[in-house]
């Protein structure tokens, strides 16, 4: 999966969880690549997907839409999707869209894996 210039993504298995760690920004041009990574995480049949957003400086609605798709997939297939490490700006996008109560959002990757 070729990375867009603005986004690098790592994925690792931690026990029964898959941790997806994007770094950079997830906006219009990066959302397609990020969606491919989320699908790859889904295909690993995990009990939980953790998206560690600590390294994401900026996200707009194409990025949020990708996570909403992932959440729908998680609910349908009965696994957890946990978002961790949002900075203030990213969190505010979720709050304005009133998605902060829809997603499971925690402070750190460790919290997400606990």
């Amino acid at each position: 999966m070729a990375d867009q210039p603005g986004l690098n993504v790592r994925m690792e298995q931690v026990g029964q969880a898959v941790v997806v760690t994007p770094e950079g920004e997830i906006a219009y041009t990066e959302a397609t690549q990020f969606r491919q990574w989320m699908r790859k995480a889904h295909d690993a049949s995990p009990e939980r997907i953790v998206v560690d957003l600590t390294g994401i400086e900026y996200m707009n609605t194409p990025g949020v839409a990708t996570l909403v798709e992932a959440l729908q997939s998680a609910k349908k297939n009965k696994y957890r999707l946990v978002l961790a490490g949002m900075n203030t700006n990213v969190r505010s996008v979720f709050e304005v869209a009133r998605l902060n109560t829809v997603f499971e959002i925690v402070q750190t990757r460790e919290d997400a894996l606990a």
């Binding site: 990708t66 909403v68 798709e69 959440l71 729908q72 996008v93 304005v96 869209a97």
Partner: peptide, 11 residues
């Protein structure tokens, strides 16, 4: 209605 898309104008 939680679904992808349609959020930009609202934001």
């Amino acid at each position: 209605d939680v679904r992808p898309g349609g959020l930009g104008v609202h934001i």
